[in-house]
């Protein structure tokens, strides 16, 4: 598996910005009348939501859009766990790792998700970018408390929170996002 391939090959993201992304970026900047720099995070989110990750051209483009140096954007991409410089799976599975979910079996849940998606569960991905399944369909990672500890264990799949997840639910959840 070479997740770096996506960043080093293929066309630059900055050469393929669609009109609606541009419009959303312009709109987001208006939310910060005091300082354009405040729009850094929103622009990174818009960019990543569209392209799946942020390549070097994206860092440069966002920096110049906000009259910043590229390092001002790159240091955000490298600090915040949410941002990626590599392509994730098409469906992103984030299993909560923290105490209440761990008490309710989240370590098993992550392992079963990995196995069902064809990912080696010994690659944790917690600190180093998530492992992606060989077919590119899924990435599975641990994240910290998702603020739903009362219905542990919980799993965020793309934008959907699944609560009280049991092993038996896993095939169904994966199927839901298969297409």
């Amino acid at each position: 598996m070479d997740t770096h391939a996506a960043t080093s090959s293929g066309p630059k993201q900055a050469d393929q910005i669609p009109a609606d992304l541009l419009a959303n970026i312009d709109e987001a900047v208006t939310h910060y009348p005091v300082s354009k720099r405040s729009a850094s995070l929103p622009l990174l989110h818009l960019w990543q939501n569209h392209f799946g990750f942020i390549d070097a051209s994206g860092v440069n483009w966002i920096a110049s859009r906000l009259d910043l140096e590229p390092i001002n954007i790159l240091e955000l991409v490298t600090f915040y766990p949410w941002f990626r410089q590599e392509a994730p799976g098409k469906t992103i599975i984030r299993v909560c790792r923290t105490l209440s979910c761990a008490l309710a079996g989240s370590y098993d849940v992550r392992e079963k998700f990995c196995k069902a998606a064809g990912i080696d569960p010994s690659v944790s991905g917690h600190h180093h970018g998530p492992p992606v399944s060989p077919d590119g369909k899924y990435s599975v990672e641990f994240v910290e408390c998702l603020a739903s500890c009362g219905s542990a264990p919980v799993v965020l799949v793309n934008n959907d929170l699944h609560e009280d997840v049991t092993e038996a639910d896993i095939p169904n959840i994966l199927n839901q996002y298969a297409s």
Partner: peptide
């Protein structure tokens, strides 16, 4: 004027001065 600002997965941004730096677009 009121707007939503989304974080990016860091617990420390709950600390109020960290939240402010985050809102200013900094680490």
């Amino acid at each position: 004027e009121m707007y939503v600002h989304q974080g990016a997965g860091a617990y420390i941004c709950g600390e109020e001065t960290s939240l402010i730096e985050s809102l200013e677009g900094k680490r």
